[in-house]
């Protein structure tokens, strides 16, 4: 057993442009990662460094080489999403993105969070400030929503052409992101989720657990979360 390579979760082509790499292991925490093709080459949330080779392996099975990664965009700075970004430091062909708010939080507070998990906080060369507003990468437009609550500078990335919302740890299938980590805030998280609920989404692509596909299912998921989870926040 121990000799088996670490290889958790499945890979799947969701649309012509979007590949989903879910993390399904219940014991070792890591995030869902997403690759956006169509000439943009965006990897959303590379996850932990130690599991990154497994992600690359799964991407290769879909015919995506490491060299096709041009942007590594992070929804927030928690280790299970962001740590692997460090592997792209000094790679001139790759631009690393994080929101300015989250970067400030990371420098002041978020770094210490890594030691809780016995990890060294990475020193990531962030080259792209993921600010609220439109973000045109190559020739593909995206919208960046600043959605604090789980972490102060959490962002969601919306791709209008696919009606896909990469929502990090803000909202999940039938649940929401934890607010008990440093910088977490339940009231802000509620506001962020209410805002997201008004976006036209066909694919809700969260940072953990199942994705939600189909506009009606996505809508229902927001309603369920608002009705059943909000009272606990």
């Amino acid at each position: 057993m121990l000799d088996e390579p670490i290889r958790k979760g499945k890979g799947m082509k969701l649309t012509d442009k979007i590949y989903v790499y879910e993390w399904t292991d219940a014991f070792e925490n890591n995030c869902n990662s997403y690759f956006i093709g169509g000439g943009t080459g965006i990897l959303i949330d590379p996850g932990l460094k130690q599991f990154f080779p497994s992600l690359l392996e799964r991407m290769e099975e879909d015919g995506i080489g490491e060299g096709e990664i041009r942007y590594v965009l992070n929804t927030h700075s928690h280790p299970d999403h962001f740590e692997g970004s460090e592997l792209f430091n000094g790679n001139g062909g790759v631009t690393i993105g994080l929101s300015g708010t989250e970067k400030d939080f990371y420098e002041q507070t978020g770094k210490h969070f890594y030691s809780w998990f016995g990890l060294n906080p990475p020193d990531v060369d962030v080259g792209l400030d993921l600010e609220e507003g439109k973000l045109v990468i190559g020739d593909e437009p995206f919208e960046v929503f600043l959605t604090p609550g789980h972490s102060p500078g959490s962002v969601c990335i919306y791709q209008p052409s696919e009606k896909a919302l990469f929502c990090g740890d803000v909202i999940f299938h039938q649940n929401v992101g934890r607010t008990d980590f440093p910088g977490g805030d339940g009231e802000l998280l509620k506001k962020s989720i209410l805002r997201l609920s008004r976006v036209d989404v066909e694919h809700l692509l969260p940072g953990h657990m199942d994705i939600v596909s189909g506009a009606d299912r996505v809508k229902k998921n927001f309603l369920q979360v608002i009705e059943y989870v909000f009272p606990y926040l």
């Binding site: 001139g92 062909g93 631009t95 792209l128 507003g133 439109k134 990468i137 020739d139 437009p141």
Partner: peptide, 13 residues
Amino acid sequence: ITVRDGDTVAVGG
């Protein structure tokens, strides 16, 4: 594509 204040336009790095 239309843009407004605060948006970002990126190619490569």
